[in-house]
Design a binder for these strands. Structure first.
Length: 872
RNA sequence: GCCCCGCUAGCCUAAUAUGGUAGAGGUGCCGCGCUUAGAACGCGGAGGUUCCGAGUUCGAGUCUCGGGCGGGGUACCA
């Protein structure tokens, strides 16, 4: 990438290469962004936090977007007089470091710390208003040691427990695989068919808080609606019944099967019972039935991913067992093992009602099982109604349902549950989709779980004095499996309780644990306890949290739970960590592909005037592919470092803010960046032209032109303020463009003293309005306008709009007849409705449309519209 | 599969949480000016079944229902 053209010293151009480092140093020297753990002053606090990055190597455009958005908020709130906490750190444990270790024989710690060094420098070049004195990485023993303490407290409080659960097992590598490491049912490295395997693992009891986590969503009024909906569905409260089906003959001492259903009303529509492949009864059958065993094996090879299991073709195996129906003892139904029944949800078994559930219907059609309609849709004819290809799961009237016949489905649910309870066959139950959080990982690069397994005493907590349990540094990644497990000495310890030979837990925590409390640690990052209580009480909750929508469920739900668990164990006073949440969209780019099918990076491609694209080196024409999320595999990435060195941080920031609403995906385009760059130069020139003439006295009267400019200035202040408050940064940018256009027009107008004053007022306002978005340019313009002041824009207050200049002089009102626009009139704001309506009727075009018609209704929305409804 | 979201000039998008004249701003295109602020600059202009189909309403880009396309999540990627 070229360094760009030399910039002549005397050219009135903004030299960002010189200015950006200069202002970054100035902010640092003045400590503009440092705050105390416990500030002593009066200002209200504001905690801005962006999701901290995983140190993958270099920052990418998604980071630039995320941290730009957060920085705008932080700088704006600072100018509004808040004491702003804006920290940064590193989500430093995780799988990629271990992959790098295996692939390139570099230690995960070295790889991680080198990445952090690189990425910290990149972030610093963006000019972010961060308090770097609070920086930490989750792989610091200091951080994870405190995390171990939090876990031990939760264990003591009964919020952690150990139980069996399933993992993806690669039998060749002898390793547990992440879902993303399973490709088409095979291990990504070995290619071996993956199996589910049961392991003893640690769980955090998030389900204990399910009702609270659901109920509190209503109070999160500064969270996006869609995130709250997604979380509510994920927690998934349902009301239904748990009921037991008796087997017609026992199987391995199992006499009945429990089922959970949300549709007890449809029990008469049952045609089969289906078990999850991991269900004890399924396993009991498989023990002596080769067909069942092979089907269960096949299901195990699908791995643990819900997306894979649910998207797979519905398949089953008839065990030959039958169950009696609780309402009609004479009838019995076949028991199948089905690949779409999840062991983790409900009772791990369902009754199939093909008429009322699409999956059950698909299954019944495939295996020739009966389909009995039991719910008649409201508009259907009871004499002819049949279930075709689509199951009906809506409300309706019960048919073919014995004692439930004629009831609507809601009342039938109640009646069915009452009957189940009378028969002793089942009972009402509230069920949750949410499962407990499995936190054990069989990996090296994570926080060690601080327990010891003693053959005599069982599970023993590591004594607090021995924390942190540190990762050993001398590890060997060549053998398959967990390096902690095959380390020669690390796991061998004596039991803290009985002193006998014992072994450390070799599992480490899920990295979501690390990110579930970092926001609290930032309040007092050097505290000797996990969270300095007074600092946390002062700063928390986070006022504005910003990050990707991909974290809408897991990370945010885990952090909400962890905060409650930390309160329960005496570490925090709050329940909800994030009072405000903003979720940003992705950064996308065109992709380019040669005829031979090779992806090319944008910098390898030249776009021609006719819209086509060629390879720079060979001139070969390349196909322009879809605009999609930047990814290394498609090579449609743009390196932020290259953009910043070529155009400067302010240009990158401005472009990111200018085009799209931040919650939506944005397309990175060369033309867009170039436009942002031109605007930085344009603003700089406008400012230089004003700085060149001495400050004018404020005149008692303003010319019409000057007054109009002043109105633009104050309306822009007003509009930008509203836009920033509502995250409409693209609108804020547009308003500033407008004011720049007005300044350009003023530059060309007949000069007068009042206009000179108004121009300076306008550019001073622009300087502050752009300061959150283009902080370096704002400082540079400010020193030129006020060379002697010594003030930094970073320390200035936000401008205030004069309401008299904001108010509109006149409004244009649209006049419709029967909803069709027929003309417009102008009126004073708040004009008398009668005079507006008579003026509307007098408008010539309107008068023509009304001629000879009788007005039956007139609608007047003051300041906007008049609509006449006439008789036909 | 299931849950959630998005779709407006060639392209990105605005249109007060609450329905009221479809266009603020950028980019691209066309034209004019200037001839050096050069990766030019300044000014002007054209450009539309608001994804499709129904419904509610005096009035729908906005609300409801159905469909299409695209995206996020799906519990061990972060």
């Amino acid at each position: 990438m070229s360094d760009g053209p030399p910039i002549a010293a005397d050219a009135p151009r903004y030299n960002f290469r010189e200015a950006e480092p200069k202002w970054q140093r100035a902010w640092e020297e003045r400590g503009c962004f440092h705050v105390a753990d416990l500030p002593s002053g009066q200002p209200p606090k504001y905690y801005v936090l962006e999701m901290f990055p995983y140190p993958s190597g270099k920052i990418h455009m998604g980071h630039v977007r995320n941290y730009t958005l957060g920085d705008v908020v932080a700088r704006y709130k600072r100018m509004r007089g808040f004491e702003v906490l804006h920290p940064m750190g590193w989500d430093a444990f995780g799988l990629p470091a271990e992959n790098a270790a295996r692939e390139r024989e570099i230690h995960p710690a070295q790889w991680t710390w080198e990445n952090i060094t690189t990425m910290r420098a990149e972030l610093q070049r963006m000019g972010l208003s961060l308090d770097w004195s609070r920086e930490f990485a989750t792989c610091d023993p200091d951080y994870y040691g405190h995390q171990q303490k939090l876990f031990l407290d939760m264990l003591a409080a009964g919020l952690a427990e150990r139980r069996e659960s399933w993992v993806n097992w690669d039998p060749v590598d002898g390793t547990v695989l992440a879902n993303e490491q399973v490709i088409d049912g095979r291990g990504w490295r070995s290619g071996a068919l993956v199996e589910k395997k049961q392991l003893a693992q640690w769980f955090l009891r998030i389900t204990a808080y399910a009702p609270e986590l659901l109920a509190a969503l209503d109070q999160l009024d500064r969270w996006p609606e869609r995130v709250r909906i997604m979380q509510a569905k994920w927690i998934g409260r349902s009301e239904g019944a748990r009921l037991r089906f008796a087997l017609t003959r026992p199987e391995a001492a199992i006499r009945e099967v429990e089922v959970y259903t949300t549709r007890p009303d449809t029990l008469f529509g049952m045609s089969f019972l289906a078990l999850a492949p991991e269900h004890p009864l399924a396993l009991a059958v498989a023990a002596h039935d080769a067909g069942a065993a092979s089907f269960v094996d096949e299901c195990r090879r699908m791995g643990t991913s819900e997306a894979v299991i649910e998207a797979a073709e519905k398949k089953g195996y008839d065990t030959g067992l039958r169950v009696a129906h609780p309402f009609t003892a004479e009838k019995s139904f076949p028991v199948w093992i089905a690949n779409f029944v999840l062991m983790e949800y409900g009772a791990g078994a369902i009754f199939g009602c093909p008429g009322s559930d699409q999956r059950d219907l698909d299954f019944a059609r495939k295996y020739g099982l009966p389909v009995i309609p039991v719910v008649l849709p409201p508009s259907a004819d009871p004499n002819t109604y049949e279930v075709g290809d689509e199951a009906y799961d809506g409300p309706g009237t019960m048919i073919n349902s014995g004692f439930l016949n004629g009831l609507d489905s809601e009342r039938a649910k109640e009646a069915a549950i009452a009957e189940l309870e009378r028969l002793g066959a089942g009972s009402r139950e509230v069920n949750w989709r949410l499962r407990d959080w499995g936190v054990s990982r069989q990996r090296y690069w994570g926080c060690p779980i601080p327990v010891i397994h003693c053959p005599t005493c069982g599970i023993v907590s590591v004594p607090e004095a021995d924390l942190p349990v540190q990762l050993p540094e001398d590890v060997d990644f060549r053998p398959p499996g967990n390096p902690l497990d095959h380390h020669p000495t690390w796991k061998h310890v004596s039991c803290p309780r009985c002193g006998g030979a014992a072994q450390r837990e070799t599992d480490t925590f899920d990295t979501f644990v690390d990110s579930s409390w970092y926001f609290a640690r930032f309040c007092s990052p050097h505290s000797v306890v996990p969270v300095g209580r007074r600092a946390a009480d002062f700063w928390l909750p986070v006022d504005q949290y910003i990050g990707g929508i991909e974290h809408a469920i897991l990370h945010l739900l885990y952090a909400r739970f962890f905060t409650r668990a930390m309160k329960a164990t005496g570490h925090l006073s709050i329940e909800e960590p994030f009072a405000g949440l903003f979720t940003q969209g992705m950064v996308t780019h065109e992709s380019y592909r040669t005829a031979a099918g090779h992806w090319l990076y944008p910098e390898e491609v030249e776009k021609l005037a006719d819209g086509k694209a060629i390879r720079r080196d060979t001139g070969e024409e390349v196909a322009i592919g879809r605009v999609e999320a930047m990814s290394k595999s498609k090579r449609n990435t743009v390196d932020p470092e290259a953009i910043i060195s070529r155009y400067g941080a302010d240009t990158a920031r401005w472009f990111i803010l200018s085009d799209n609403p931040p919650e939506r995906d944005m397309e990175w385009t060369e033309a867009g960046v170039a436009g942002a760059f031109r605007f930085t130069q344009r603003l700089f020139r406008l400012a230089e032209n004003i700085a060149a003439s001495p400050k004018a006295e404020r005149p008692p009267q303003f010319s019409k032109t000057a007054h109009a400019l002043r109105q633009s200035t104050h309306r822009t202040i007003e509009a930008v303020t509203v836009a920033l408050e509502s995250f409409a940064f693209n609108v804020a940018v547009a308003r500033i463009h407008e004011l720049a256009n007005a300044l350009g027009e003023a530059e060309r107008s007949e000069p007068d003293p009042g206009l000179a004053w108004a121009r300076r007022e306008a550019i001073e306002a622009v300087t502050r309005l752009i300061a959150p978005m283009m902080p370096h340019l704002a400082e540079e313009i400010n020193t030129r306008l006020n060379p002697a002041s010594g003030m930094l824009v970073a320390e200035m207050p936000w401008p205030e709009a004069d309401p008299d200049l904001v108010a509109a002089d006149t409004v244009t009102i649209a006049i419709q007849v029967m909803g069709k626009l027929r003309g417009t009139i102008t009126a004073a704001p708040g004009a008398d409705p009668n005079s507006v309506i008579s003026a509307a009727m007098a408008e010539p075009n309107v008068a023509r449309a009304l001629a000879g018609k009788r007005i039956v209704k007139q609608i007047h929305v003051p300041g906007r519209i008049v609509n006449f409804v006439v008789a036909r």
